[in-house]
Simulated scan of single mutants.
Amino acid sequence: MTEEPEPRKVHTLTPHSLRGLAHPLRMQLLISLRRDGPATASQLADRLGESSGSTSYHLRQLAAHGFVEDAPERGKGRERWWQSAHQGTRLDETLMNDPDPTVRGAVGVYLHEVATFHATELSTWIGTQHDWPAEWAESSDISDYTLRLTPEITVELAAKVNELIESYRELAVDEDTPGSAKVRLHTHVFPTHYTE
């Protein structure tokens, strides 16, 4: 009998936690811990080109808002190791219309940082794909589509795309599987021309 994979821990942002995350360096720190695993403030500083004092301060702020935590199995000696407390973050759409302008401003910072990170990842792939085996270059995809839909149909489409991607988690292979790599998928669903 196959063992069910553990469900992913996803943090749904609240006005309070959003304020703690909506900072470019904090988002980079969290992304790095999720993508590359536990690290110390010094290692993250080297990785991101920051001072260890700065990364240490922002890691403590992330911890205060529940985004990162100690990595106890790594905590040997004096250096503190950090890890992400969740595998993902979900933005509650109601925050975009929050009556508090500082919350709406934090949503804007958060979404712009996500978009910037996605663009950077894609640009990095385009610039380095010649370093990868041919089968990886052939398996990648950069596509865009334009459809005329209603908001209700768009919600359904996005949900089905996300459901399909999630269904592939059970096919994920171990880290030491030869020929395997972490694969990133970005989804962006947004309107461009509106008919009243």
Rank of each mutant, 00 (worst) to 15 (best):
T2V: 15
E3P: 14
E3N: 15
E4L: 15
P5L: 08
P5S: 04
E6F: 12
P7M: 01
P7F: 00
R8M: 09
K9W: 04
H11E: 08
H11K: 11
L13W: 00
L13V: 03
P15A: 01
P15I: 06
H16G: 11
H16W: 12
S17H: 04
R19C: 06
G20M: 06
L21T: 09
L21A: 01
P24D: 04
P24H: 06
P24A: 03
L25K: 08
Q28V: 00
L30C: 00
S32C: 03
R34M: 01
R35S: 00
G37H: 02
G37L: 04
A41E: 04
S42N: 15
S42I: 15
S42G: 15
S42A: 15
A45E: 01
R47F: 01
G49P: 13
G49A: 05
E50Y: 07
E50W: 10
S51M: 13
S51K: 14
S52P: 13
S56N: 09
R60M: 12
Q61V: 12
Q61A: 04
Q61K: 11
A63I: 09
A63V: 09
A64R: 10
G66P: 07
F67N: 00
V68C: 01
E69W: 02
E73R: 13
R74F: 14
K76G: 08
G77F: 01
G77V: 07
R78I: 11
R78Q: 08
E79S: 11
R80K: 10
W81M: 06
W82D: 00
G88R: 05
G88I: 08
L91I: 05
L91N: 00
L91Y: 00
D92I: 12
T94N: 09
D98G: 03
P99F: 01
D100R: 13
P101R: 03
V103L: 04
G105D: 11
A106W: 02
G108C: 06
G108L: 08
G108P: 10
L111N: 02
L111M: 09
L111S: 03
E113Q: 13
V114D: 01
T116F: 08
A119D: 07
A119W: 06
T120F: 11
L122Q: 11
S123N: 11
W125S: 08
W125V: 13
I126E: 07
G127Y: 06
H130K: 15
H130C: 12
H130E: 14
D131W: 12
W132G: 12
P133R: 06
A134F: 06
E135P: 15
E138F: 09
E138Y: 10
S139F: 11
Y145D: 15
T146V: 14
L149M: 08
L149H: 03
T150W: 02
P151V: 10
E152S: 13
E152D: 12
I153K: 09
T154P: 11
T154V: 13
L157V: 13
A158F: 05
V161K: 08
V161W: 05
N162K: 14
N162W: 10
E163V: 12
E163L: 10
I165G: 04
E166M: 09
Y168N: 10
R169D: 05
A172F: 05
A172Q: 08
A172V: 14
D174P: 14
P178S: 01
P178R: 04
P178N: 02
G179W: 07
S180E: 00
V183P: 10
L185D: 12
L185F: 13
H186V: 15
T187M: 07
H188Y: 13
V189K: 05
Y194V: 15
T195P: 10
E196M: 15
E196Y: 14
